[in-house]
Design a protein around this nucleic acid. Structure first.
Length: 558
RNA sequence: UGGGGAAUGGUGUAAUGGUAGCACAACAGACUCUGACUCUGUUUGUCUUGGUUCGAAUCCAGGUUCCCCAGCCA
């Protein structure tokens, strides 16, 4: 399943720092961590972080821990803990035995909190949430000290222990670090270390009624695990002084360093957890693994190979400048990987019946087709050919423009691996809709070449009417119709055409026989993968991505 | 002068005082039993103003623009 990750040592400022730390002997082994909060599914932005942290561990012969930052039981669920592990594995990374939870350290964290109190560095604040907010000041005005800031160590200890014992209601009190209410950096204005939360925790159950904040738990967890380089995104840059303050005041076993990089942004895509969650809960998509979702689960279901995701995050690099990557870059990586690996098959998405009038009734034959034009080792397969076939509706035009090379009245084209055919007659129904084409074929062109050397300008895919298998095919387009959708009002930017379901499609028998979810190229169409909605009597395929289509671009230009 | 960060083609990212490179995109062409793939070529860039230097994307000074921070979220 999870193939081995083969990250190469691409260079970036973080790897430069690590190399320097190794060279100077500051560290002899590098330890990183990927610390997701289990409150949602992983998305492609996380893939960047995962590849960075696990990739660094591989390249520098260190290790990378998977640590769940489970400090807020009101938002976290076991479902997410499970999906995150599955997604990291699918991406091809392995944490070995190093699976941890911040909740593993709750007792130690608590003891250290008492120590802070004893050293006069933390106090219990009885102010309401509102009072704390008001007294924190603003971006340009300093805050005011809490009236409870100078309680005695004994009183603080007593109160904190009673908070732990569950004596108080949610929000009644918090434990705060005593730093500086006038600090320009708001994170240093006596940040909250513990809050009262009477909630069921996925791992510790009802054992605790107080929970550490991210700021308090994260750095200490890093230290406990011996993390050398704690890599996070830019918005935590302001937290670094607090991260270091805590590490400095506590008897931690190590002093990890925090480094920040710019998170991934993609055109036509929103990656905020809030939006993703609302997309799912609001029914705008069909679950976290809807193929239109930028989640890892969505990409997987859509048929995107993990190697393509890895290649993508490698290509975009790691830097400190905010940026928005063109989603076309991701699409390129997907096509590149799939073109290399996907076996070729034929499928007709919108069938148009063709009767080859001069092909003898009742006759049929077997035709050999290659599975991959660039890989002879992929072998061949047999296709059935007969008098009645189906071609793609888009491949016929009754009144074609000049540059249309496909089938049209009187025009000769090649059926891939089959024969040259020429359109003789267009059959329409009462409504004027084209329902059938009458064509003739040249028996001498079997296999696709004319002995007289004449050329055709188009080669088309086709399926024998006799053994084509019905299938449903789901075509996905961008979930958002604007390059830069607005997170605040994302519903307005949703693309109403993001999902198109083709129920009358046909696939060749070998496609129907495939049981695994391996990606395939339907020739001239794109890459497809069998969806899990398939059953014994119903075939469903997702289009992972279409082939590049320069003809469509030409048409669009007019 | 609240604090913290960032500015290199359309996009992303290199160059660590010495020829501004790579990839994607775009455009043009070649090839082709997939209008795919592949190949060839082209266009486009150092935020700004000064300074230091033989030489500046890089160092210095000023300016401009953008991003983050006022959760008992992470």
């Amino acid at each position: 399943m999870a193939e081995a990750a083969t990250a190469e040592a691409g260079r970036d400022f973080i790897r430069d720092i690590i190399q320097a730390d190794l060279d100077s002997k500051k560290h002899t082994q590098i330890v990183t961590r990927f610390p997701p909060e289990p409150n949602g599914y992983l998305h492609i932005g996380h893939a960047k972080s995962i590849a960075l942290n696990f990739g660094i561990a591989q390249e520098f012969a260190g290790r990378c821990h998977l640590r769940f930052d489970d400090t807020n039981p009101t938002k976290e669920e076991q479902e997410y803990i499970d999906s995150i592990q599955a997604d990291v594995r699918w991406l091809g990374f392995d944490w070995g035995g190093h699976l941890y939870y911040a909740s593993d350290y709750f007792e130690q964290l608590y003891q250290w909190a008492e120590l802070l109190i004893q050293n006069g560095l933390a106090y219990v604040d009885d102010q309401s949430q509102e009072e704390i907010r008001v007294n924190r000041g603003t971006l340009t005005e300093p805050g005011k000290n809490s009236p409870f800031r100078d309680r005695s160590v004994e009183e603080n200890l007593d109160l904190f222990r009673r908070m732990k014992a569950g004596e108080f209601q949610n929000g009644a009190r918090v434990l705060r670090a005593k730093i500086d209410m006038a600090a320009g950096n708001i994170n240093l204005r006596d940040p909250v270390l513990y809050r009262i939360l009477h909630a069921h925790h996925p791992r510790t159950g009802q054992a605790w009624s107080i929970y550490p904040s991210y700021d308090y738990a994260h750095g200490q967890s890093d230290a406990i695990e011996g993390i050398t380089h704690s890599i996070c995104t830019l918005e935590f840059e302001d937290h670094r002084p607090l991260y270091e303050w805590l590490l400095d005041k506590l008897p931690v076993p190590a002093k990890p360093r925090q480094y920040e990089f710019a998170r991934l942004n993609l055109t036509y895509t929103l990656l905020s957890k809030r939006v993703l969650t609302e997309l799912v809960r609001g029914g705008h998509v069909n679950g976290w693994d809807d193929p239109r979702m930028p989640t890892i689960a969505g990409l997987r279901r859509r048929g995107v190979p993990p190697a393509a995701v890895r290649e993508f995050v490698k290509r975009i690099g790691v830097a400190k400048a905010n940026s928005v990557v063109d989603v076309g870059m991701l699409e390129f990586c997907i096509r590149e990987e799939l073109n290399r690996t996907a076996p070729r098959r034929m499928a007709v998405l919108r069938p148009l019946k063709v009767v080859i009038e001069n092909y003898p009734e009742g006759q049929s034959e077997q035709i050999e087709a290659v599975n991959h034009p660039d890989d002879p080792a992929a072998g061949t397969r047999t296709l059935h050919f007969g008098r009645e076939i189906y071609i793609e509706r888009d491949d016929f035009m009754e009144n074609p423009p000049k540059k249309f090379f496909r089938l049209s009245p009187g025009n000769e084209v090649r059926l891939r691996y089959g024969y040259f055919i020429t359109c003789r007659e267009v059959v329409k129904d009462a409504a004027g809709e084209i329902v059938e084409l009458r064509c003739s074929y040249d028996p001498a062109t079997r296999g696709g070449n004319a002995p007289d050397g004449r050329k055709v300008k188009a080669t088309m895919h086709w399926l024998s009417a006799q053994d084509a298998v019905p299938a449903e095919i789901r075509i996905y387009n961008q979930l958002f119709q604007k390059p830069a959708p607005e997170a605040a009002n994302f519903a307005a930017d949703l693309n109403p055409q993001s999902l198109e379901v083709l129920t009358g499609a046909l696939v060749e028998p070998s496609v129907a026989a495939a049981t695994s979810a391996e990606p395939m190229q339907f020739e001239r169409q794109g890459y497809f993968v069998r969806d899990r909605d398939s059953s014994a009597d119903r075939l469903v395929f997702n289009r992972t991505i279409g082939l590049r289509d320069t003809f469509a671009k030409e048409v669009a230009k007019g």
